[in-house]
Amino acid sequence: AGKSKVDDEVLDDLEEILVTSDVGVDTTLKIIDRIEERVSKDKYFGTEELNKILREEISGLLEENNSGSETEFVIPQQDAPYVIMVVGVNGVGKTTTIGKLAYQFKKAGKKVVLGAADTFRAAAIDQLKIWSERVDVPIVTQKMGSDPASVAFDTLQSAQAQDADVVIIDTAGRLHNKVNLMNELGKIKKVMKKVIPDAPHEVMLVLDASTGQNAIEQAKQFTRVTEVTGMALTKLDGTAKGGVVIGISDLFKIPVRYIGVGERMEDLQVFNKYEFVDSLFGEEQEA
């Protein structure tokens, strides 16, 4: 604090903060280049101004979250149920995020139906069932080992029959370098279209805030197979900052919609990019 101009030391500190927040070297250099450019234009440049510019530059890399109001859980109004398919690698928080989302949509007066299309992982169906009971929304299941596409099909049909507003489909965690498992997602998507031609309306990629640079490859591969339309960033209640989403949002033009900040039903928030950027520069980090 108390520095009056942007010198190498300030930029070095900035680099450290960004890299240790998992922003990644490429994106960090991109940000620093932009700052340097602006600094060279305007010679007298205080730290306070730097903070403002930093905020602008980084938020500029984050895609606009078009879900409407900044703090509410809203989905587009439409005739057929709005279908959200949730994807991501193992253990990031897909099922939990679905439970939390169901809670929010229900609270907003929507009729929600869940589909347990993770038929692979041990007790994944039971896990989502418990969430459906907690939130008190209907769920469609088949038994472990059955075809996930068939579960998705059933869920959409059931949702349509019930005149539901939102359908959320859970899928098994899969590493993005496993070709067969990734192709399975394409199949699930295709089968949904037989019930609702433009479903899924949202493919939500869930990323764990503690993940490092590999998240970029995750985003790339899931986008390739399923055309991801939104992201949720989980586990931000820990010490990890989740900075990798900045580069991802910029590279693939996908907005971050929600953040997970705990394991309870209420622990999901609508993403706010200014708060997110501030959190990168919040407490001093120690390593």
Binding site: T20, S21, D208, S210, T211, G212, T239, A240, A287
Partner: peptide, 12 residues
């Protein structure tokens, strides 16, 4: 610990 963990691995 997850091998995909980023910079936070040391803290944890």
């Amino acid at each position: 610990v997850d091998a995909m963990t980023g910079q936070d691995a040391v803290n944890t």
